[in-house]
Design a protein around this nucleic acid. Structure first.
Length: 1065
RNA sequence: GGGCCCGUGGCUUAGACUGGUUAUAGCGCCGCUCUGAUAAGGCGGAUAUCGCGCGUUCAAAUCGCGUCGGGCCCA
């Protein structure tokens, strides 16, 4: 009886297996089973519990699971604690949206920060549950109950511990940072967030002149697309090496870069102008100018440092657009800021974090900066300083959440972690990591670490790890707290209800040890990358008890998508090097993203995101896993296309069908697998048995090599190819006859043993890829036909290749077989001779001696397989003598010369000896006699074609030429007919859904007496093949009584009509 | 603005590091065929200026430079 369903149905199967795993606690049993093994430690990169799992996440998680299952079956005690990244801005934004809070001010007033934080927790817990469900559905085996959560106090304490340590090492600092801020969300954005929000923005583009101090009518001409920043202009930058020129125009002198003179003058509509002087930029250093808004902005009246309102030099200046003189406002751009620092100019940043001017700019106080953009040119115009005004469409960063244009703004209160002092260690430690692919680490990540800026870790938000810095109200003394215990020791006010989140932590007041004053907390939370970055330590409760950490650190393996290079990979490395002076992971596999079917980026706004839950419910976890694991290399991007997945699924269908086939016959014969028996009888086994076992071992070897390099796509492809190419396409057809045998033939048992052994080995190797399918086939197939197998395939060992079974010569021999098969099919095809019809002879003209020997050794097998009566291998082309050379006249060459004699000439050419003519042509004295005239022929007048006589067909192959002799004899005719008939009877048996061993009564009616005669020749054979108890063969002379038969059907075989009647007994 | 990856029949892709016969394979299409595991398989056919341009070379899908397009990272 078949326990397996007729068809592979992943959805039902996976549901059953999930239930089996749960009820039988299989995962826990694997932990116990491997508890004595050597450790292999995986550090889970915590998914953000904000939003649901999409197919891109699921691909990464499939990779993780494949690796984890593989290592477990290799005997390792695998550490695989789950983890969740639960804090950060996106969570707050979603809560704001859900609660209808538009601005941050409302968080604190209307809703209350404690309620707000509660909502954040509820939200992340909601997503966490969904993530766990989806992960389990995918088959990802992690420790979920003990998973670390970055929002827990115990976890956050590690962040504090780290920051205190960093501070002690002089790495924690505060100061000016120029950050892109969103005035609506009131927050700084990370570079990652900025790059997600580039959109086209239309801005004013204005050219402005600044009057040089102490010169008459002499000006610097600058350009900007953010007029409001002119108010905070402090310098003008020039490139030290570029050539700048003084241009006389309308009685004034303008300075600008030489390359852009024509363009600027054209825009300013100045037709007559004259270049009167030129010098390199560096000569302009220190030239002072009058600030256009000196009267309106007090800051510009107070400050007059050496390079304030002066020309400075910098290599960031380009001549792509503008004037070559770059307006520089250190408060409003990272480049500008660096220039300001270099030339020691104080920063003017008169804008608050909601994007509005402060009282430092009385004329615009309280107004959004972008709103003043149109007014600034008007003011300049009045002052006579506007040279030209237009608008410009350009890519400008917008908030990726709310589409508000960002402002680059200097903020002096931000906290950051320095690169100075640790950079070399980071670079050095990174070189010790085994990256896959190599360039992801050495190139992309390595270059980035080598050039990374200081890391700004402060965020003016609520839902995050609080920055553990308290500042004295009086003397401004600062203290960095490293733990809850330490906090309590310093506290003079501590809330009854406490947790390490705002607002509770803000209520803690500390005593200043320096002046005795009160210390309050800096109201920042930290960058959430810092949370996940500390996972190497916090995820194993290092502070409570470091012994586990000591066992696991550094972790053996991590894998995440490329965007984590600058995120998690970096934050892990930085924090680990500071804390433990060591990279926290030994190997890292970089993944690329999953795109939509057309190769476009998946994004919520485009609406093309495919959620993991939907994909898994639609196609099943195993087909999904196979697709994402084998489709492309982990580091290559992948297009997610449902149509392509359906194709991948077919490969699993083949596996299912192979098992189904074997199950049917093993069941009939009450087979039990016995490995010792197989090994003992192996020397006497058939060629194909030895070959399959050899192929299997070669495949397993290749599989391990690829897995060892984390090349899952290669390992998976090797396995899938084996199933369809070797097992299903080559081996099974060869053994079908054997399993048909009725008796207890040792050859049959051998075939069963070989198939069983192959499937057992194969399924274990495949388990990391399709754990559901493999578990099912283990449970309901492997266990059934062997003794003493554990209940789960996950409790078995990964098979390693058995070298003694590898026979390379045999594998090469079978490659010859494959070639012979396709060449023979080709040759038959040319003559329209079906494979069912036997041929008299097949001759191979082998390319070399080795092929010849190999083909010869296959002789017995080939007679059957190629359905030929005889098979011959020759080293020289003995068949060439049968080759006929025919002459094809070239009408284009002959026509013009012989005109009306052509008809006769063509007829004559069919008669002449082609071989002789070719020889004569080569000698240059060919001629034919037509109607008594000698006609001369030259090279090119005719072409020669080789052709075979009708009874021969021919095909070229990699191993040599193949001739097939298709001569028909009565005997061969009969055999072909019998096979035609047999097949049709078999189809009818199947249509009646008869059991394989079911007997029948059979009558065959032929529309042609000769066919009856032919069929009689093979009556015994026919009876056996169709399992007929009684059989009647009749022709047109006698009509059987069709009523006697329960199933009657008429067939057309070429010109013959066949009517079949059968009754099951 | 800078860096990295990618571009191969209608579609999906191998090959590129290490230049060398007719560019790999699958899907789809057309014709033929096999089948008592198979919604499968086999044979043949049509479909590719290997994104474009320039260069190096006896020889370029492969190496170099440039350019266009897609994706990612950073500013």
């Amino acid at each position: 009886m078949n326990l397996l369903s007729k068809r592979y149905e992943p959805l039902a199967l996976e549901e059953e297996i999930l239930d089996f795993w749960k009820k039988q606690k299989i995962y826990d049993k694997t932990l116990e089973f491997r508890s004595k093994g050597p450790r292999w430690n995986f550090l889970e990169g915590p998914p953000t519990t904000n939003g649901f799992m999409h197919v891109g996440h699921a691909r990464g998680r499939a990779m993780k699971d494949a690796q984890l299952r593989y290592m477990t079956m290799r005997g390792y005690n695998v550490w695989r604690r789950g983890g969740w990244d639960m804090q950060g801005l996106p969570v707050e934004l979603e809560v704001e949206k859900n609660e209808g809070i538009a601005e941050k001010g409302l968080i604190e007033s209307d809703v209350g920060m404690d309620v707000f934080v509660q909502k954040c927790k509820e939200l992340v817990d909601f997503y966490l549950e969904r993530w766990v469900n989806d992960s389990i559905r995918l088959g990802l085996w992690l420790d979920y109950p003990s998973a670390y959560q970055t929002r827990k106090d115990d976890y956050i304490e590690h962040v504090w511990h780290f920051l205190k340590l960093a501070n002690e090492n002089g790495l924690l600092g505060r100061g000016y940072r120029v950050n892109p801020i969103c005035p609506r969300c009131v927050t700084a954005l990370s570079g990652h967030e900025v790059s997600q929000g580039y959109m086209v923005k239309t801005d004013p583009s204005i050219y402005v002149k600044f009057k040089l101090v102490g010169k008459e009518n002499e000006y610097l001409v600058i350009w900007t697309t953010t007029p409001f920043t002119l108010i905070s202009n402090e310098m003008v930058s020039v490139h030290p090496k570029y050539k700048y020129v003084k241009v006389k125009v309308d009685g004034e002198s303008w300075w600008l870069v030489e390359d852009l003179v024509v363009e600027v003058m054209h825009k300013a509509k100045k037709e007559s102008y004259e270049i009167v002087e030129s010098l390199p930029g560096k000569k302009m250093l220190g030239w002072k100018y009058e600030h256009p808004f000196k009267e309106e902005v007090p800051f510009h009246q107070v400050h007059n440092e050496k390079y304030m309102h002066a020309v400075v030099t910098g290599t960031h200046v380009t001549v792509e657009d503008g004037t070559g003189l770059v307006h520089t406002a250190p408060g409003f751009g990272p480049d500008d800021f660096n220039v300001g620092r270099e030339f020691d100019v104080p920063v003017l940043a008169p804008v608050n974090n909601t994007g509005k001017f402060t009282s430092e700019v009385p004329m615009f106080e309280g107004r959004l900066v972008f709103d003043t953009n149109p007014e600034v040119p008007r003011l300049l115009e009045k002052k006579g300083l506007l040279v030209h005004e237009e608008t410009l469409d350009h890519e400008y960063p917008h908030c990726w959440r709310c589409d508000t244009p960002l402002i680059y703004l200097a903020d002096k209160s931000q906290w950051f972690l320095r690169m100075t002092g640790v950079r070399e260690r980071l670079v050095d430690e990174n070189t010790k990591v085994e990256w896959t692919p190599e360039w992801a680490g050495t190139g992309r990540f390595g270059d980035w670490v080598a050039n990374a800026d200081d890391w700004c870790i402060s965020r003016s938000r609520v839902w995050g790890s609080p920055l553990p810095v308290w500042v004295c109200d009086d003397c401004k003394e600062e203290i960095v707290i490293g733990s809850r215990k330490e906090l309590k020791e310093h506290a003079i006010k501590f809330p009854d209800e406490f947790e390490m989140h705002r607002p509770w932590v803000d209520e803690v007041v500390l005593l200043c040890e320096k002046c005795g004053g009160e210390m309050h907390r800096e109201q920042f939370v930290t960058d959430c990358w810092l949370d996940s970055g500390i996972a190497h330590t916090a995820s194993v409760d290092y502070l409570k008890d470091p012994s586990l950490f000591n066992q696991l650190f550094p972790f053996d393996f991590i894998t995440e998508a490329v965007d984590q290079s600058r995120g998690w990979f970096y934050s892990l490395l930085y924090t680990s090097v500071v804390m433990h002076d060591k990279a926290p992971f030994k190997a890292c596999v970089s993944q690329e993203h999953v795109l939509d079917a057309e190769g476009g980026k998946m994004s919520k706004s485009r609406g093309n995101v495919v959620w993991a839950e939907d994909a898994l419910a639609d196609i099943g976890a195993d087909p999904f896993r196979v697709f994402v694991l084998t489709r492309s290399a982990s580091w290559s991007r992948m297009n997610y296309d449902k149509k392509e997945i359906d194709l991948t699924r077919k490969k699993l269908d083949v596996l299912w069908n192979v098992v189904l086939f074997t199950e049917t016959y093993m069941d009939l014969d009450n087979f039990k697998f016995d490995e010792k028996r197989m090994m003992k009888t192996l020397p006497k086994a058939n060629l194909e048995d030895k070959w399959l076992l050899s192929r299997l071992q070669t495949v397993i070897k290749e599989y391990h090599e690829q897995m060892g390099k984390y090349l899952w796509h290669q390992a998976g492809r090797v396995l899938l190819e084996f199933i369809s190419e070797d097992l299903s396409r080559v081996y099974l057809p060869l053994v079908k006859k054997r399993v048909w045998l009725d008796s207890e033939d040792p050859k049959k048992v051998m075939a069963y043993d070989v198939i069983y052994y192959t499937l057992q080995t194969f399924l274990r190797a495949l388990n990391p890829f399709t754990p559901f399918l493999c578990e099912k086939l283990h449970k309901d197939f492997l266990v059934r036909f062997a003794e003493d197998l554990p209940e789960s395939i996950n409790l078995t060992d990964m098979p390693m290749s058995v070298d003694k079974l590898i026979d390379q010569e045999m594998e090469k021999t079978f490659e010859v077989l494959q070639e012979l098969r396709s060449a023979s099919s080709h040759a038959r095809n040319k003559k329209g001779v079906k494979l069912r019809h036997p041929v008299a002879k097949v001759v191979l003209i082998a390319e070399d001696e080795e092929t010849s020997k190999r083909a010869e050794s296959l002789r017995d097998l080939l007679l059957d397989d190629l359905n030929t009566r005889d098979f011959e291998v020759q080293r020289t082309d003995v068949m060439a003598e049968f080759t006929r050379l025919s002459i094809k006249p070239n009408y284009k060459a002959l026509g013009p010369r012989y005109k009306d004699m052509m008809k006769q000439l063509v007829l004559k050419l069919q008669e002449v000896d082609a071989v002789k003519l070719r020889r004569d042509l080569e000698r240059g004295k060919a001629e034919v006699v037509v109607a008594g005239k000698k006609l001369k022929l030259v090279d090119g007048d005719v072409e020669f074609e080789e052709s075979l006589p009708d009874h021969l067909s021919f095909a070229e192959s990699k191993i040599g030429k193949l001739y097939v002799d298709v001569t028909r004899t009565k005997e061969l005719e009969a055999e072909g007919l019998v096979r035609d008939v047999t097949r049709r009877v078999q189809v009818m048996r199947k249509e009646l859904d008869l059991k394989v061993e079911q007997s029948i009564d059979l009558v065959l009616y032929f529309s042609d007496e000769e066919a009856v005669e032919l069929a009689e020749m093979f009556k015994v054979h026919l009876t056996n093949e169709t399992r007929a108890q009684t059989m009647e063969l009749v022709g047109p002379k006698k009509q059987p009584t069709w009523k006697k038969y329960s199933y009657v059907k008429e067939w057309e075989i070429d010109d013959l009509t066949l009517k079949v009647g059968m009754s099951p007994l």
